[in-house]
């Protein structure tokens, strides 16, 4: 399985490096603005945030595109002629997309924290050179940033982010596996159809809606919301280990695993390469 993951990564290395390259350029732009200009530092931060979000989304979508391409491209022979069960291949593909996405998001979060610290430190330096009311306003802005960072990095918030992150990871896994299943299903039923991509998407939406409907009917209600106090500190964190929380998570993971095995079954028994 790790060998398949290695080759999945190698197949994607060029677009991944291009995306990271674009982010590196934007990070350099931010650093330049922060230290030498400061006039457009806000724009550079917005660009970084938007591009980061787009790259995370692209990593997940690209995994699906690569999976779909293997069915329509002769290079799929190279993947599926290897003597390993289809479930291993599909698990490797999902895990590659999943871990690449998660690794990117974690790295991006840490870079974001570092950037805010750099921004505050530069802000303080600039405030010292100002006078009167402007300096006060500027110091006050920097103090707000610092407070935001303190709250963000407080034990309670980190714990809360960790829990929310865990739930997000489970949901991303669920969404990815259901999407892979939808692609496998459309390749089984309508292989070579010119609207196959659209049909896969519609199937994905229908499957997600169906599974959510079942969850709403059968599973106990579970509150995923996080409440913040006036000072921005997390008041109620998600209770992951409540019975309702565990049942909901098991449902998502279980369906994800079933979707993976379903895709593997279709690849091994129904889909023609």
């Amino acid at each position: 399985m790790f060998k398949t993951m290695k080759y999945e990564l190698m197949k994607n290395r060029v677009p991944i490096f291009v995306m990271l390259g674009i982010l590196a350029v934007l990070e350099c732009l931010f650093l330049y603005e922060n230290y030498f200009d400061f006039e457009n530092v806000g724009i550079s931060i917005v660009l970084l945030i938007l591009t980061g979000g787009a790259v995370s989304f692209w990593i997940l979508i690209n995994g699906l595109v690569m999976f779909s391409r293997d069915f329509n491209n002769k290079s799929g022979y190279l993947v599926y002629m290897t003597p390993q069960p289809a479930v291993k291949i599909i698990t490797a593909k999902i895990l590659t997309a999943f871990f690449t996405g998660v690794a990117f998001m974690v790295g991006y979060f840490l870079l974001g924290v570092l950037d805010v610290q750099l921004l505050i430190s530069k802000g303080h330096q600039m405030a010292e050179q100002m006078s009167g009311n402007t300096a006060k306003v500027f110091e006050s802005d920097m103090a707000s940033f610092a407070q935001f960072l303190d709250v963000l990095l407080s034990e309670k918030t980190i714990l809360s982010i960790g829990k929310a992150g865990f739930i997000m990871i489970v949901e991303v896994f669920f969404i990815l596996t259901v999407a892979y299943f939808a692609i496998s299903l459309s390749n089984t039923l309508l292989r070579g159809h010119k609207l196959q991509g659209l049909i896969s998407f519609v199937l994905f939406i229908v499957l997600c809606a169906f599974f959510n409907y079942i969850a709403n009917m059968v599973l106990p209600d579970y509150d995923f919301s996080v409440m913040l106090g006036e000072d921005g500190v997390v008041v109620n964190s998600i209770n992951l280990f409540s019975a309702a929380g565990i049942i909901n998570l098991v449902y998502s993971v279980g369906l994800g695993v079933l979707a993976m095995f379903g895709s593997a079954y279709l690849i091994e028994n129904k889909i023609d390469l």
């Binding site: 080759y7 190698m10 197949k11 290395r13 060029v14 002769k74 290079s75 799929g76 022979y77 190279l78 002629m81």
Partner: peptide, 12 residues
Amino acid sequence: AYAPTEAFFFSY
């Protein structure tokens, strides 16, 4: 060991 008629290697 199967060699299809088309090119089936990864482009990179």
